[in-house]
């Protein structure tokens, strides 16, 4: 009987006024979250460059602030915020989470960490366990990534705890792209290096305030050249790589440089574990 009274004391009397207040808080949270996300996403999508990434970064942060403020207002309506009550409540919540909702809550908490630490934000190009694409939305529980194949992949935030997250541009506009060329070993390497550099320098997509590097690597079957350069906008990366590849092949072919032909028994390099991103960029 005493225990029942004690638990009853934990919660305030939930009368109609309290219910209305909670309803208003809930409606306000939903409204503010939807409006803030639409406005900020809409604004960011109309902009380009660094400002776009700054505004995108505000989306999850704004939602987190709205939630914290709502909880700070709603909790005292439901319970008497004494130390004893809070310990009891948090203990009960902890027990429920431990048994039933561990992963779900872990994702929610990781989502809050992601909103503060910003390992990814909308507009970033990330690779999480082989899924490479542009971050479209950072939600409460998941991050939505749009792949180059136009698939929308929802990755739970809890990957943050134990998975390497490759962020290709990290909130900036600079994203390195790599175009590969596999050439027969007999050629004038210095000429090829200069020609490939000119191919990059004459690309309409090139970002000029970043370096252009042509890397040559000797392999048993020939020479592997890579142009490492940056497009003006990360969203142009595939067009940029294609432009470099097409024009690079044209220049090399016109100079009579043959591509490397692998004998059938030579194994190709092991496919990259990361898949999409590195497969495209390396």
């Amino acid at each position: 009987m005493d225990d029942q009274k004690q638990y009853a004391k934990l919660f305030n009397d939930i009368d109609s006024q309290a219910l209305i207040s909670l309803g208003i808080i809930l409606a306000s949270v939903i409204l503010l979250t939807v409006v803030s996300q639409r406005v900020l996403n809409g604004l960011a999508n109309r902009l380009h460059g660094q400002v776009r990434f700054r505004i995108f970064a505000l989306v999850p942060l704004t939602r987190l602030v709205i939630l914290i403020v709502a909880l700070a207002i709603a909790v005292p309506i439901m319970i008497e915020p004494s130390l004893r009550n809070m310990v009891t409540l948090l203990g009960a919540i902890g027990l429920a989470i431990g048994f039933a909702l561990k992963d779900y809550v872990s994702s929610l908490i990781a989502g809050m960490v992601a909103a503060v630490e910003l390992p990814y934000r909308p507009g970033d190009w990330v690779d999480i366990e082989g899924t490479y694409g542009e971050v479209k939305h950072v939600g409460m529980r998941t991050v939505e990534i749009q792949t180059p194949d136009d698939d929308l992949v929802a990755v739970p935030h809890l990957k943050l705890w134990d998975t390497a997250i490759y962020n290709a541009n990290n909130g900036e506009t600079s994203l390195q792209c790599v175009a590969s060329f596999y050439l027969h070993p007999e050629h004038e390497a210095q000429w090829v290096r200069k020609a490939l550099r000119d191919v990059a320098l004459t690309s309409a997509y090139l970002k000029f305030d970043q370096p252009i590097i042509v890397v040559a690597e000797e392999k048993p079957w020939g020479t592997h050249y890579r142009i490492r350069a940056y497009p003006v906008d990360p969203r142009q990366q595939f067009l940029f790589i294609t432009d470099l590849t097409v024009r690079g092949k044209q220049v090399l072919s016109r100079a009579g440089i043959k591509p490397a032909l692998l004998p059938p028994d030579v194994a190709l390099e092991a496919p990259d574990v990361a898949g999409g991103r590195r497969g495209l960029r390396d």
Binding site: H48, G49, V51, T173, K207, F208, D209, V232, D233
Partner: peptide, 14 residues
């Protein structure tokens, strides 16, 4: 010219 230059600059073109 003025608006084109400004827009190109904001989009990180040379």
């Amino acid at each position: 010219y003025a608006s084109v230059r400004q827009l190109l600059e904001t989009r990180n073109y040379l």
